[in-house]
Computed example of a mutant assay.
Amino acid sequence: MRFSALKVLTQGLTGNRGWRAHWRDPEPAEAYDIVIIGGGGHGLSTAYYLAKEHGLRRIAVLEKGYIGGGNIGRNTTIVRANYFLPGNSEFYSHSLKLWEGLEADLNYNVMHSQRGQIGLFHSDGQRDAAIRRANSIRNQGDDAELLSVAQLRKMVPYLDYDQGRFPIYGGLLQRRAGTARHDAVAWGYARGADQLGVDLIQNCEVTGIDIAQGVVQGVQTSRGAIRAKKVAMVVAGRSSQVAAMAGMRLPIESHVLQAFVTEGLKPCIDHVISFGM
């Protein structure tokens, strides 16, 4: 089933009775070539690109809950390529290009809206840092514009520019940045992976990893044992816990990150604003 404007219109006029489930709900097979633990955005995209770009088909994604119900459903929505450090800047530059073609690739609306993003600076030192960042971004091949207070007032008149503690000195604008719905991204990748033959196994918690002579043989789950030639862990903040099942101690810690991100509601908010670069 492909989405189109005509399809949406006809379904709306006929009570939306013709839509089918976006992906199958299969029972786990006894064995797969690849098992991916974690049905979030990264796990689903890994399955999708393994199938699409590398032609692999005997793949299963195991999700403890339901697709799009984990960290992906609570993620921030800013899409941008305005990072400064080497490694980060290249990664996000490539990522932004993927975002710009993602909906066409998946034939799915992930609500990607390139409304731009402005990072505010509040001191001379932050302005100098923003100039260095802008030069780095443009050298990377992406867009960046320094905005004066006068330019900002025209674009975002509702900000308090003169409040005493954090006066606004200007901003760094990336027009190609924007927002997306990350749970919709998970659903789009799930739909695409399913169409390529990937089994998406929901409500399937991994409880153990089977290893023989140092080689992974498969996983134990709440829905039985599943053999696999390769097992991938894509579980975000649960990485240390799942790795421990394989006898590995990862040199990382998970920390809660809380952020306030404006949700763009046209025409009320035309730009995403982040405070304190």
Score class of each variant (00 low, 15 high):
Asp33Phe: 09
His122Phe: 05
His54Gly: 08
Ile201Asn: 03
Arg24Met: 08
Ala134Gln: 14
Ser240Phe: 04
Val215Asn: 01
Gly65Trp: 08
Ser45Glu: 10
Trp23Tyr: 13
Gln241Ala: 04
Ser93Leu: 13
Tyr48Ala: 00
Gly247Cys: 11
Val235Gln: 03
Pro86Asp: 07
Arg181Ile: 09
Met233Ile: 08
Arg80Met: 07
Ala180Tyr: 05
Ser148His: 04
Gly197Met: 09
Thr14Pro: 12
Arg80Gly: 03
Asn135Pro: 00
Ile252Val: 11
Ala129Tyr: 13
Leu106Gly: 01
Leu44Asn: 08
Leu13Arg: 12
Leu50Ser: 02
Ile269Val: 10
Leu146Gly: 03
Met111Leu: 10
Ser113Glu: 12
Trp23His: 10
Pro267Ala: 12
Trp23Pro: 04
Pro28Gly: 09
Glu205Phe: 06
Ala190Asn: 07
Leu56Lys: 09
Asn16Tyr: 02
Ala232Leu: 15
Ala5Ser: 13
Glu100Asn: 15
Glu27Thr: 11
Ile201Gln: 00
Arg176Ala: 13
Val156Lys: 08
Val156Ser: 07
Leu62Val: 05
Gly39Met: 12
Asp199Glu: 05
Arg191Met: 06
Trp19Lys: 06
Ser239Gln: 08
Ile269Ala: 13
Met233Gly: 01
Gly171Ser: 03
Arg115His: 15
Gly101Asp: 15
His255Ala: 12
Gly224Gln: 13
Ser123Arg: 14
Glu253Asp: 02
Phe3Pro: 01
Ala236Phe: 03
Tyr158Gly: 03
Leu265Ile: 15
Gly141Ile: 12
Pro26Trp: 11
Glu53Ala: 07
Leu173Phe: 13
Leu265Lys: 14
Ala246Glu: 05
Gln163Ala: 14
Tyr48Thr: 00
Val198Ile: 07
Ile273Val: 08
Ser4Gln: 06
Ile273Gln: 02
Leu265Met: 15
Phe3Glu: 00
Thr14Val: 10
Gly188Cys: 06
Glu263Tyr: 12
Ser45Ala: 14
Gly178His: 08
Ile37Phe: 00
Ala184Pro: 01
Val206Asn: 05
Ile269Cys: 13
Gln174Glu: 09
Val79Met: 08
Glu253Ala: 02
Ala31Phe: 08
Pro167His: 14
Gly171Arg: 05
Leu120Pro: 11
Arg115Asp: 05
Ser274Glu: 15
Gly178Glu: 06
Asp142Met: 07
His271Tyr: 15
Val219Arg: 00
His54Thr: 02
Arg175Glu: 09
Gly171His: 10
Leu146Ser: 03
Gly18His: 11
Tyr158Pro: 02
Ala228Arg: 09
Lys64Met: 13
Arg238Glu: 13
His112Tyr: 15
His122Glu: 07
Thr262Phe: 07
Tyr66Leu: 13
Glu205Tyr: 04
Ala129Cys: 10
Glu53Thr: 01
Leu196Arg: 10
Asn203Trp: 02
Asn109Leu: 14
Ala104Phe: 04
Gly43Cys: 01
Leu106Ser: 01
Thr77Gly: 07
Arg132Tyr: 00
Ala243Gly: 12
Gln220Ser: 04
Trp99Asp: 10
Asp270Glu: 04
Leu98Gln: 14
Gln241Leu: 01
